[in-house]
Design a protein around this nucleic acid. Structure first.
Lengths: 202, 202
DNA sequence: ACGATTTGTCAACACAATGTTTATTATCAA
DNA sequence: TTGATAATAAACATTGTGTTGACAAATCGT
């Protein structure tokens, strides 16, 4: 049910479409990009585009979904490594979270070009929140469990935190990722924990 | 230089265009809205639209600018009232901030229809940050002054906070503003101050 | 290596929205 | 009331859209 083998021609077509689209997206807003333009840059027929996508927005959504899948896969990989080398209780929970967050920042740095498009101002906030939720949900849920905080109360602070992380990452990307991934990870965990402590100690 | 009197016909035209556009924006995404459609709903000629705006996006930008101006005006008004009734030192700074924030949430509630469009997921994050900066800059700058925090260090936390506020307000709007404005104000100030304290106590 | 299948190409198509222009009419400010 | 300004209506070339059907090329399973 997962990977039915995809025809090489299809792979190629989708690849060049995405590349051409991303190139265009670096120069102008999605609303100014036409299908015709994408096809010319990708050197494929316009009818071929319509065999794969409905329009620019559908294409972007599928690129976003792919990005989400890649992040998921990356997180799973990290989990497996952690299980394998598992040294329970050696390090503090906090240090563990920082390490995980640091890995994520490294992932973003390695995929800077795409991340700049999808996660910076150009991308949609809804998608960005999805990414942050994917990444920070395990962290936040663990940090909040056994804290006696009501779900309803927590949700507003949670919204604040998730969206805050988006802005935090955007700032980093806009800044050309000058701060170290370690600094970013340490700070974001500090901020997140700080907010949770505020919630607990109310 | 401010208010040259505007022809009544122009006022009317711009009004019906905005109304028609906002109605459409409640039903579908801006990318699906055509100029033709706006003009039909506004019952004006298409050439007239082009006499005022370049396209949908230009129109939206001008609506956003107008919204920003209104917020500014509202903030100035609050400042004047505060000066007039000024009771220096009576209440704590914190209580003062909460009151100001509460007023803002009341303003949002009173303009719920437009705010839902501009500040919720549908709107652009860049604009939303602008609004939040306008509102929280005075608060944050006062809270951070004399704290010995470096600008560079503060900027990342500042980005986190501003964007966090966006998500916080969106959550409220998505939730149909069930929580009281007082609760929202108190919480947002608590969170903001909490983050600043983290910055100070590093 | 084969044949069947799938995919991409090409040209053509009707259609719709765009942005601009012109002459004409209606409305405004003074 | 009058001169100025704004909105209208109709027309126009242009451009992108989305779809179609015949054809060629590449791919896959065997």
């Amino acid at each position: 049910m997962k990977n039915q083998k995809i025809d090489r021609r299809v792979k190629y077509t989708r690849m060049v479409i995405k590349e051409a689209f991303i190139d265009l997206l670096e120069k102008k807003d999605i609303s100014e990009i036409t299908i015709k333009e994408i096809c010319e840059n990708a050197d494929i027929n316009r009818a071929t585009f319509y065999a794969h996508y409905n329009d620019q927005y559908d294409l972007l959504r599928k690129i976003e979904d792919e990005f989400l899948d890649n992040i998921k896969e990356y997180l799973d990989m990290l989990d497996n490594i952690r299980d394998y080398h598992g040294e329970p209780g050696r390090k503090s929970k906090q240090a563990d979270h920082v390490l995980l967050a640091e890995k994520i920042f490294e992932y973003i740095k390695e995929n800077a070009k795409l991340c700049k498009l999808l996660l910076s101002e150009r991308g949609g906030l809804h998608f960005q929140k999805k990414v942050m939720k994917l990444v920070y949900d395990p962290i936040i849920s663990e940090l909040t469990k056994n804290s006696g905080v009501t779900k309803d109360e927590a949700e507003y602070v949670y919204s604040f935190t998730i969206t805050g992380c988006v802005g935090f990452v955007q700032k980093w990307l806009d800044d050309d990722m000058k701060k170290s991934t370690h600094y970013m990870a340490e700070t974001v965990i500090k901020l997140t924990m700080g907010l949770i402590d505020l919630l607990k100690g109310k």
